[in-house]
């Protein structure tokens, strides 16, 4: 309860949503912090876990700054997620949302344990890649929770419109989001195992084609629906940025192969590639969720032209 309001009151809902957004924002920062650890080759700068050099606060020198900074942000995200899970459990009326709060908590704990294990076992590829992939999965959970707790979520429940049978968006958006997640797995494998560039490039091609088809369909068949147009435009822009960063990452890695230490430009570009990748995934996920929520196959008999002009604010 916030400011004497019940959680189901508009005021309470707004505060809960703000808190979810805060947690999601810090999760994004955590992904960036993790990418900085990998880019700076700082993964083993702190040999012990869960303490750092046997203390809560080690000397913040050299790469310890990146590794311990990552641990501090992770601890804070873990704290926020715990508060969120309890908040949802105590105040949220929708059972499904409460359940997702606990799934988020379980995921962030598993992620912390994976992070510790990868340090204790000297960064084995399988654990490091799993750690990177679970980070993106946790970010997806937080993005989903941000949507589910948004005030517009309930408001739009009665505004479902029929999906255009000749241009289905629901399955295509889901396939695209899945393909992007798979592509992030390939990217993590490339980053941590330093092999598999061909697969990652092929993955980029598949994702690009899927996004092109998806966005074209939105602009041709769903141009009246602001929510889809916005998401489609954002996804396109992010993808262009991500492809550019991908090429940039490859080139700077190539140029830096004989470097004695990680170059700032290489760390910056590869970290941006990881961060924008997370944003591409989040946008595609929101598009998939909104498609499934706002388009109804059961109402297929209704022609699209007779649907409401605006689906969501």
């Amino acid at each position: 309860m916030i400011d004497g309001q019940t959680p189901n009151s508009p005021h309470g809902r707004v505060w809960l949503h703000r808190f979810v957004l805060l947690t999601t924002g810090f999760t994004f920062l955590l992904i960036i912090a993790g990418a900085l650890v990998t880019g700076n080759e700082a993964g083993l700068a702190v040999p012990d876990w869960p303490l750092s050099y046997g203390a809560l606060m080690p000397p913040m020198v050299g790469n310890i700054r990146y590794e311990h900074g990552h641990r501090m942000v992770a601890t804070f995200v873990g704290f926020l997620t715990t508060v969120l899970a309890v908040w949802l459990w105590r105040r949220e009326s929708r059972r499904r949302v409460r359940k997702w709060g606990f799934i988020a908590l379980g995921t962030v704990i598993a992620q912390g344990v994976l992070g510790g294990l990868t340090v204790l076992f000297f960064l084995p590829t399988a654990i490091s890649v799993s750690h990177a992939c679970l980070a993106q999965a946790f970010f997806c959970i937080m993005v989903s929770l941000s949507l589910m707790t948004s005030p517009s979520w309930e408001d739009s429940a009665d505004k479902r419109v029929p999906e255009n049978r000749s241009a289905p968006l629901r399955w295509l958006s889901a396939v695209t989001a899945s393909a992007i997640y798979f592509q992030l797995i390939l990217g993590a494998a490339l980053r941590h195992a330093k092999s598999g560039i061909v697969l990652h490039v092929l993955g980029a091609l598949v994702v690009t084609v899927l996004v092109l088809v998806l966005v074209t369909r939105i602009f041709k068949q769903y141009a009246k629906y602001r929510v889809f147009v916005r998401l489609g435009s954002t996804l396109s822009l992010l993808l262009v940025g991500q492809l550019s960063l991908g090429v940039g990452s490859y080139l700077v890695r190539l140029a830096a192969r004989d470097d004695i230490q990680p170059a700032t430009v290489m760390v910056t570009i590869t970290t941006a590639h990881v961060a924008v990748g997370a944003l591409v995934l989040a946008t595609s996920l929101i598009l998939a969720i909104q498609s499934h929520r706002l388009l109804s196959p059961s109402l297929n008999i209704m022609p699209l032209s007779s649907a409401p002009q605006k689906v969501a604010p």
Partner: peptide, 12 residues
């Protein structure tokens, strides 16, 4: 978490 802490920490 406590068990992990005990098992994982190597000391300073």
């Amino acid at each position: 978490l406590f068990l992990f802490a005990c098992a994982g920490s190597e000391g300073p």
